[in-house]
Design a protein around this nucleic acid. Structure first.
Lengths: 341, 341
DNA sequence: CCGATGCGTCGAACCGGTTCGAAGCATAAC
DNA sequence: GTTATGCTTCGAACCGGTTCGACGCATCGG
């Protein structure tokens, strides 16, 4: 394998000169610079990543901690990963993907070993046990998801409170008086998935203020259980005219459930979900939804992380907690409730 | 950050002794070994990955080249990634995820810079332009997918020919005489997705030998186009009693299409797909299918790759091309064709 | 009692980059 | 003519590990 010494020798200069000629960090005569660069290209020189990382304390790699939990809906996860990966690539960083179920251990390993210049955490829980380790690490970190304690990290998340309010208000304006909200499994909450109750509480409060009945329930995140649960739910709440979904698996299962019940949206039932447009396309979901913007959140997290890594953020710049405002994508699945007699 | 020199000093030994005490590559007195290890644990020592890679020429990282192409169905892709990531972790390797659309460029960069000890290629095309670069690289490579030229790499893939035969034979045994096969978009073939015609040709030949009419068509891999196409297809082939799917998007769209047409499987139409069990669960697909075993293929690829990396494979061990036999998972969506008058 | 053996430890070199201080040299300024 | 200035270039040190050869010392055999 050709190293910088080989390049220097072939160009007839010292190693240091070759380094400067390639990096441009010191002025080098035009003639030498061109010669070194030509020789480097001819020999197919690529710097050794380990050596460079050792010398500069920069690896040009971002760690991505994603956990594929059995009660998270994997395809939804993928969107965040793509958003992070694409943005990182454009910024000149590679992605080290750690899907270890032992999140804290994996995080400690990749930060302490200086394999990464910074870390993006997905799936952040209310009291995430990776956070203490991240705060103690020398690298900056960015989160997608809101924990209880945001000190020392940059945080990006959908404004789930606003989403909950917007969903209820939207159906209230159309005249609905009884709604059902299907959230993620309770298990997700216990594990610290605060976004579940953030949306739910805001929805409940808004409903209360407006005199609307809101049945808030938890649904499985696996098929086919969630399908059965939706059936049981619609059986038990015949008066409900609107269905709110904060559960990707439920959204994916709903078209089949509606067909089986000979119901259509919005004729018989108004439906409003919370998932990304990409997700809607993949699953052919015809329901209006609050856009969860995974690509945008991933992009924001990486952008800010890169700013910190490259010290474009001034030393004492305060950490940010930024919420993306939910936008309603209208796919025509909501309408005034049907007239009943 | 604490380095091995700090550990050595705190333990009162030389750096080299500390290294040997931790690695066990030379005998060290019990007393010193225990003391060094205790001190290392107390100080929270983690070796610097760059330095270690530089010294040993081993990074303990495997490169994973995955391309998220618009005409591939992303959730299907995810399964391979998970299979590879899990197996790599268990073998003590981290994953460098390169989702760069410029596959050859990304591959050249991560191999030449010695960031990775080996590479797994997903989405391998008939004449994949990453292969010449992989063969020239000093690291071994493993493919998931069958290219035209397999020299210099280990190859793992589903036996798509056998899958095509098995699908037709299965429905032939049940008495079907006219079938439809929906494959991936033609664009996937043009790009080199040989598995599409490998399955299709085998299916066509089997059908011909058995006197069965097989309509082979290509379908979109995006929603909602594929749904419309399925409708048009069923309109135009009213005599077909069996539907074979080698297209994940078509499988995902089919339940809705069947409901809309008031058809049920297998009562009105026998359906047989080619996708993984995990995929079937995620999308609540009630159709029998040929298991595409992405996790198993990912695992096999990584296992073999690790053997090569760690020279457990004898120097001259020939490269393998290994096909996974398709297994039919019966979900009860096939039956003898309905009696018509 | 002396030389051979072997275990445990140490110092130094090396991996392949980057970076700092200094030196060489030509030109400009006094 | 001498000194100051600036531009190039070089050599050496450093990042933090691993590994090789050598050395000291205790043990064993003759």
């Amino acid at each position: 394998m050709v190293n910088i010494g080989d390049v220097a020798r072939a160009a007839g200069v010292a190693r240091s000169t070759a380094s400067y000629a390639l990096s441009g960090k010191r002025s080098v005569s035009d003639e030498v610079r061109d010669r070194v660069r030509r020789v480097a290209a001819e020999l197919g020189y690529t710097p050794n990543a380990g050596a460079r990382a050792l010398a500069t304390s920069q690896s040009k790699v971002i760690g991505l901690l994603a956990q594929f939990l059995p009660d998270e809906f994997a395809p939804a996860m993928l969107q965040y990963i793509q958003g992070v990966a694409n943005t990182a690539r454009d910024a000149g960083y590679d992605i080290l993907l750690a899907s270890d179920p032992d999140g804290p251990g994996a995080l400690k390993r990749i930060t302490d070993s200086r394999m990464v210049d910074g870390v993006v955490l997905l799936n952040v829980a209310e009291n995430d046990d990776r956070l203490p380790i991240l705060r103690a690490a020398p690298q900056p970190g960015a989160l997608v998801g809101l924990p209880a304690d945001c000190t020392g990290v940059d945080v990006f998340d959908l404004d789930f409170e606003e989403a909950g309010r917007a969903m209820v208000e939207h159906l209230d304006r159309l005249g609905h008086r009884e709604l059902i909200l299907v959230s993620q499994p309770e298990h997700v909450i216990e594990r610290g998935g605060a976004y579940v109750w953030r949306l739910q509480n805001a929805a409940l409060e808004t409903a209360r203020n407006r005199g609307i009945t809101l049945h808030a329930v938890h649904g499985s995140s696996a098929q086919p259980e969630i399908g059965r649960e939706l059936h049981a739910l619609l059986d038990s709440r015949p008066g409900a005219t609107g269905l709110l979904l904060n559960n990707e698996a439920a959204a994916a299962a709903l078209p089949t459930v509606l067909h089986e019940r000979r119901l259509s949206a919005p004729g018989d039932l108004s439906v409003l979900g919370r998932y990304s447009d990409e997700f809607a396309r993949t699953f052919s979901l015809p329901f209006s939804s609050i856009e969860s913007a995974p690509d945008r959140l991933g992009r924001m997290a990486v952008r800010q992380l890169v700013r910190r890594i490259e010290h474009q953020a001034p030393e004492g710049e305060p950490y940010v907690v930024r919420f993306v405002s939910p936008e309603l994508v209208d796919r025509g699945s909501t309408a005034p409730p049907p007239n009943r007699h």
